[in-house]
Amino acid sequence: MNRTLGVGAFIRKQRALLILVAGFIASSFASPYFLTADNLLNLVSQASINGVIALGMTFVVLSGELDLSVGALNAFSGVLVARLIPVCGAGASMIIAIALGALAGVGTGWLVARLHLNSFVVTLCTMFVFNGLALLLSDSRPVEIDNPVLGALGTGAVLGVPVLIWIFAVLCATAWYVLRYTWYGRNVLAVGGGAKVAELTGIAVHRYKISVFVISGVCAALGGIMLSGLLSSASPTVGGSTALSVITSVVVGGTSLSGGEGGILQTVVGLFVFAVLSNSLSLLNVPSFNQTIIEGLVLVVVVGWDYFSRRMAALSRLAN
């Protein structure tokens, strides 16, 4: 009995990893092109933009909240940088974009932590605001960018590996370290796992809640900069489905929507489940709408399963 429980627990815990491995193997059989270095580097560098945003989202979800505004913020910061570069150069405009991302996070976090508003609804609103701002700044058209720094960021490579991947990898390692080894990271987990207990222990819960939205805002802004570097242009409508895919990646990896459980490694696995999926579906010429359907299905199933298994766990705890 104990052993079957162990296997079950392993499958539950490593569910996403198993799916990833299976998907990887299936893809390499389905398309001979899949396992080439070119394709894999391409796959990872495309995933790295949403990946950076997903890192920020991981902090938010771990603390028990949600941030839907990341897609809009992503588009907004891309457009902002595109507009600012002719005025004040690449460096300054990137700093401004990232600072605005942080500021947006402070605002959202304050509303959520101090006024106890539902983060989903609040970020739905800020999503609207930033979408509007992005359209406004760009006259509702994609903005061309011709800047060597941004170009190098988006398409350059160091030691044969694209810069985008380097950025993602460094941030991954940092985020992982923060969550594993710093007081800050551990307290974020405590806040998500039991806000009331954390508060009683003297952890300033609201500060942590605000801080996770700041991290998420910064990551979303950075993602926008990376994306406009990759495409040499910034589109105001690019972030439409970003929030959904990012949250889906985080949740599918195994980070619980109720907070406190999960981490960066899970997010990375979840991210690559979808990256491999969409890469191989593209290689097989499956239209992108189907990919969205699959993403939506996975979201419903995983969220449903999350709740369902918690209910079952509550029942079986009682029975034992």
């Binding site: 080894y181 710093t182 007081w183 307290n187 405590a190 796992g193 009331k196 907070g259």
Partner: peptide
């Protein structure tokens, strides 16, 4: 109980007062 169910026993005991430095928890 005032424990955080998702954290380890050790962390619960020292919740908010972890060993080591702020940037390096000594596990």
């Amino acid at each position: 109980f005032s424990l955080v169910p998702t954290l380890s026993v050790a962390e619960n005991i020292f919740l908010g007062r972890l060993a080591g430095k702020p940037w390096k928890v000594s596990w």
